[in-house]
């Protein structure tokens, strides 16, 4: 699937990352169209997180280039980062602050004027349902609340492209619905959402464009219908990575019996 240059929300060329003897990302070429809900799927260890970290400036690639809306992330980091919002998988935040303090801090950190920061902070806390948590430090938040406040941090500066790594992992359905609504609104306003997941049903429900990664390589890329064909995305994925036979089931005869 071809994405015209300049029309890509992000593009990587020949991206490569090697850890010792393990190749995490193997000369990846990938592009996502603007305004899309782009899903990167693959099993654990496929290189999704590594790729996202290299595109957002958190991990230095061994080779290759990464661009966000045509701006090279490593050559012109300031401009690129202005357009990027990131929600990583392990949400490490400045958690000895309350939600409001954290948002104020992130906003001021990006050089935004104090009044804009204050106003957007209130709106985000309200929309994401975090106002009841007033006065509680982020370190005491539940997992879902942490993700929501992290999403607020990622959205505060109105980025053009959102990168989310496993955003719905271990999230209760209510928080998940709120997250989805916010992401949809972001997209409706012209933004792009790039998210990685290994939960195929979720990707099927939300995304319009899909990239399938396996062992650091791109296995398939295209619109959702194209990639999954007639079956489900999970079937397509499993056959693409060549793991057709399902293991397990034989043996383990003692499982579930009470003979201890």
């Amino acid at each position: 699937m071809a994405v015209e240059a300049g029309g890509a929300a992000f593009r990587v060329r020949g991206l490569r990352k090697v850890y010792g003897s393990k190749v995490a990302v193997d000369s990846l070429d990938l592009a996502a169209p603007r305004g899309s809900f782009f899903g990167m799927v693959g099993p654990n260890g496929a290189g999704k997180t590594t790729t996202l970290r290299m595109v957002t400036g958190l991990l230095r690639p061994d080779a290759g280039s990464a661009e966000v809306e045509g701006i090279d992330v490593w050559l012109d980091p300031l401009e690129a980062k202005r357009r990027i919002g990131v929600l990583p998988e392990d949400v490490a935040l400045f958690d000895r602050l309350t939600g409001r303090q954290l948002l104020t801090y992130s906003g001021l950190l990006r050089g935004m004027p104090a009044t804009t920061v204050a106003q957007r902070t209130e709106e985000l806390l309200d929309v994401l349902g975090l106002t009841e948590a007033e006065g509680t430090l982020v370190v005491d938040y539940s997992h879902g609340m942490r993700k929501k406040v992290a999403l607020a941090v990622a959205l505060l500066h109105a980025p053009r492209v959102l990168f989310l790594d496993e955003p719905f992992e271990a999230i209760d359905p209510v928080s998940a619905r709120t997250l989805r609504a916010v992401l949809e609104q972001h997209r409706a306003n012209g933004g792009t959402v790039i998210f990685s997941s290994h939960v195929m049903e979720l990707v099927e429900r939300l995304c319009d464009t899909v990239a399938v990664l396996h062992a650091g390589r791109l296995v398939a890329l295209g619109r959702l219908d194209q990639v999954r064909g007639n079956g489900s995305l999970e079937d397509a994925f499993v056959s693409l990575v060549g793991a057709d036979e399902v293991a397990g089931g034989e043996g383990l005869r003692w499982l579930g019996s009470s003979s201890g």
Binding site: G57, L78, K81, R82, A92, F94, D95, S106, R110
Partner: peptide, 13 residues
């Protein structure tokens, strides 16, 4: 600050 420094890096500040 520990791992939260990623916020500083990603903000380009």
């Amino acid at each position: 600050d520990r791992a939260a420094v990623w916020l500083l890096v990603v903000s380009g500040s």
